[in-house]
Design a protein around this nucleic acid. Sequence first.
RNA 1: GAAUCAGUAGCUCAGUUGGUAGAGCACAUCCCUUUUAAGGAUGGGGUCCUCGGUUCGAGACCGAGCUGAUUCA
Length: 393
Amino acid sequence: MLMKRVVVGLSGGVDSSVAAYLLKQQGYDVIAVFMINWHDKTGTLEGDCPWRDDLVFAQLVAKKLDIPFHSADLSKVYKKRVVDYMFHEYEMGRTPNPDVLCNREIKFDEFFKVAEKYKADFVATGHYCRKETLEKDGETFYRLLAGLDPNKEQSYFLCQLNQEQLSKILFPIGDLPKERVREIASEQNLPTADKKDSQGICFIGKVDLPTFLQQRLETKKGDVIEIPRRFQGYLDFNPDRDNPIYLSQPWQYQPEDGILIGTHNGAHFYTIGQRKGLNIGGKKEPLFIIGTDTLRNIIYTGEGKSHPGLYRKGLSINAPAMHWVRPDLQLKQGESKRFSFRIRYRQPLQKGTLHAMKEASYIVFDKVQRGITPGQFAAWYEGDEVIGSGVIE
RNA sequence: GAAUCAGUAGCUCAGUUGGUAGAGCACAUCCCUUUUAAGGAUGGGGUCCUCGGUUCGAGACCGAGCUGAUUCA
């Protein structure tokens, strides 16, 4: 019987190194490919060319495992489908999640083309996720499951994948705790065994976001308005009304609803829930951003971490932005179902109800949620399985 | 023009009966974290409006001036 061939995305970190090792152990024909997706270092905090180090580490790992090594420059597509999207979203006053896009568009799309070139049956990565197959009415479905290490669990970042993509993916380390991954790496003398985990935007690295964004977004001074806790909109809101559309409305402010307390350098550089970077002191408690209006270039803030403007009962996702990892579980128009939700990476799952309607779907949480931010992804789970996701409106 | 009150870190303020200053916020760094945030830890910072005086010693007491707020003419 022919060995199945796998292209593994070797990043130069421990996780993908161990993934490659495990695949080899399992008898796959393993090929390592290193992706170069970003050359520009403007606004980067790590200085000179971090990926060159990673490339060397990846090469060393491949050599140690005695597997073929290649590199692929996908930077053109990365720029177009991830970076441009990112700037566009910020420009529109939203807060994107480039890494979710990077997985959907690059690692599990463009990278597949590379894998095809090498006639691979599968693509593998070092993500802390699991995949299971399910036979249902004669059809095969792939389930995207949370990684078993609760601390490293990364299924959220893959919440935009579809069945076709999942059919070709392997997650060799998804059922291991990080500790064990490091252990295996050092048992096998992999050069990445003690390498620090990478952080920041995938392939770009740690950046100072305002600096990074200033490459393409202009700075322009605008007003910072503080909204009092007793703002009429909060007092009028009735969380017990049984209407998902009503419950999902964002707070709406006008400059007259508060007082001018300072100036900022451009509303699109800030995000909801943010505390740092406003440069406004003199308050008893910290100020948090509770709203941004990029059209009028106004930032709305509230004092204290319990300010009502920081919390919302629900959110909406426009119909075209709805994505079902499990299309067989897609809600029909007018249906509602209970799920667990996550609106940012590493957030503990939150219980609530998803209501599917014609023009949009609505998530109503059992408990109010802090920092619901347009542009970020909401993902819904059944147990530890990702069922779907969508961009918050 | 007069009266009263105020003038202490970037901001808002606290400083007991006089012994060379503190808190919150802001800011910086680090930790956490493959997004944005949040969170945790540590830290840098002050001619105490100015000038005189009293005193061994004044942010604090006295006087003058400057600035601001309020009230009355």
